[in-house]
Amino acid sequence: MARISTVEDVSLDEPTLVEGFPGVGLVGKIATDHLIDVHGMIHYANVHCDGLPPVAVYREGNAAATTPVRLYADPERDLVALRSDVPVNPAAASKVAACLGSWFDETGLFPVFLSGLGREKDDEPPALYGIATGDGGEALARAEVEAPSESGLVSGPTGAMVAAALEHDRDAVGLVVESDPKFPDPEAARRLILDGIDPIAGTETPTDGLVDQATEIREAKQQLAEQMRQANEESSQAEPLKMFQ
């Protein structure tokens, strides 16, 4: 049965949720993992949604098994982060989106969806764009996040959640950042945090360690990236539309 089970009671007002399903460059996962670690966020709830892989995860130094998708909260900053340790099969994306969408409606939170747009790396900083549903465009305007410079689409579980927000007229934003199509990209995740998440959520997040520890992050995330490649599944990503319009 689809449900969100609370692990720790926390007091939240009108929280911003940052979604971190693995995708291109693992930018969403790296960004949300960093937010959770830097802000010392509390393990708030476990996610039990139809369509998620039926696996359990465990952590070094902790004997307690838990779900592969979890929610963390920071009451002081009115912030919630979705951490996922597994990719989601595209065929199950709509089920996961429906499960989480119902919870979004119950809690009244404002979701920020994250996706990477595969681009070969160069000397220029990765570009960041924003899309919105409902009145989410107001948040993008306040944060001065630019509109996309080309047409495109967002796929995977992130795309399914944006589509569900559009269908149900939920206020939400999607942040799209240019990222390495082959390897984890902490630089792109840093851009997401500094110029997207922080100004939208009203937070201040130290990010120097992201780039300084790029090698360590790449090694730690490489196994997940390889798992996604071998499965040949479409992860959450943005991509240009190659067609007449």
Rank of each mutant, 00 (worst) to 15 (best):
S11P: 01
T16A: 11
G23H: 04
G23F: 03
V27R: 06
G28P: 10
K29C: 03
T32K: 10
V38H: 03
V38Q: 13
H43C: 06
L52A: 07
P54A: 14
V55C: 09
A64W: 04
V69W: 13
L71T: 02
A73M: 05
P75V: 12
E76S: 10
R77F: 01
A92M: 13
A93Y: 05
S94L: 06
T107Y: 02
L109K: 03
V112Y: 03
G116N: 08
G118E: 05
E124N: 07
A127Q: 13
L128P: 10
G130W: 12
G130L: 10
I131T: 14
A132K: 04
G136W: 08
E138I: 11
A141K: 15
E144K: 14
V145Q: 01
A147Q: 15
P148F: 07
G152W: 07
G152V: 07
V162C: 09
L166M: 13
E167L: 15
R170E: 04
V173D: 09
G174K: 00
L175I: 12
V177H: 09
P181L: 03
P181H: 04
P184M: 06
A188M: 02
I193G: 11
I197G: 00
P199L: 02
I200G: 09
I200H: 07
I200C: 09
R218L: 13
S235L: 07
S236V: 10
A238L: 04
Q245T: 10
